[in-house]
């Protein structure tokens, strides 16, 4: 990897960062203050598109710089619009960093209430992407199904379209304050665990359990099957057959989520 510190402002640059939010904000800080002509972003150690004409520059994450960007943003646009940028980052959509960067640049460009400029393509894209991520977060708040384990942990596995776990802790910690719970992103292999005090990010090592012959009965609480069945039964009985509309049903509860929904099993 080439690292260069002297970059001419007109030469296209690909900015390499560590993949974290602070890393991205640091990259924004450097690119903005050094007036780089950014043509794209890439994550260190992750393969990225090669652009032979662009120079690559590696940014070292610096919390102080990241904070300055974040605090600066808060002075320019409402908090909700700052959070929108974070949600976009969590979308993991290829190329979204450049949109975030361009949007931040626009927010700093001196217009009054720049976040209302829906005619600006970056502002619009940030709005729309953020909405998609927010919707996924909202879906997870709806679709998480906890199962009570024998040692009184409420466990839920999820596979969201976007990386929404960081957006979930507040809601679940407030709501389920008096029970231990764990929400685990099976695709991204990490989760959040709450012990009635604080929420922690954790990763699980399933390799030990793979060979063990523990049966479901041992893992789950005695009452778990009863309540799952009662819920399935309830779901069946609130349906009004003469109003049946499966199309609408699937639109609200897309099939890809069914495998974790007790009532759809």
């Amino acid at each position: 990897m080439e690292v260069s510190n002297t970059i001419f402002s007109d030469k296209p640059v690909i900015v390499s960062y560590d993949g974290t939010w602070y890393g991205l904000l640091t990259a924004v800080f450097d690119a903005y203050s050094k007036k780089w002509n950014v043509s794209g972003f890439s994550v260190i150690d992750r393969e990225s598109q090669s652009d032979f004409f662009a120079e690559k520059v590696v940014v070292v994450t610096d919390e102080a710089k990241a904070q300055r960007v974040w605090l600066g943003l808060k002075k320019k646009v409402p908090k909700e619009n700052c959070i929108q940028l974070y949600r976009c980052y969590l979308s993991e959509i290829a190329g979204i960093e450049l949109t975030i960067f361009s949007c931040i640049k626009f927010y700093f460009s001196g217009f009054d209430s720049p976040h209302l400029a829906y005619g600006n393509p970056d502002v619009l894209k940030v709005n729309q992407t953020s909405k998609m991520v927010y919707r996924e977060k909202h879906r997870m708040e709806a679709f998480v199904r906890f199962q009570r384990t024998a040692d009184d942990l409420y466990y839920a596995g999820i596979e969201p379209d976007f990386n929404v776990i960081p957006l979930l802790n507040e809601h679940f910690a407030e709501r389920y304050a008096d029970q231990n719970w764990l929400i685990y992103d099976i695709k991204r292999k990490y989760g959040i665990y709450y012990d009635q005090n604080k929420v922690e990010e954790i990763t699980l090592d399933f390799s030990n359990d793979a060979g063990a012959k523990t049966s479901v009965k041992d893992v789950f609480h005695d009452s778990e099957t009863l309540y799952q069945e009662l819920w399935q039964n309830y779901f069946k009985n609130v349906n009004i057959p003469s109003r049946r509309n499966i199309k609408l049903h699937v639109q609200h509860v897309p099939k890809r989520y069914w495998k974790h929904l007790i009532e759809k099993k």
Binding site: A142, F143, N239, R243, L248
Partner: peptide, 13 residues
């Protein structure tokens, strides 16, 4: 308020 699921007639549960 959250709709945790939808009935087969498309109503919020």
């Amino acid at each position: 308020g959250i709709c945790h699921t939808y009935t087969e007639d498309g109503r919020c549960v």
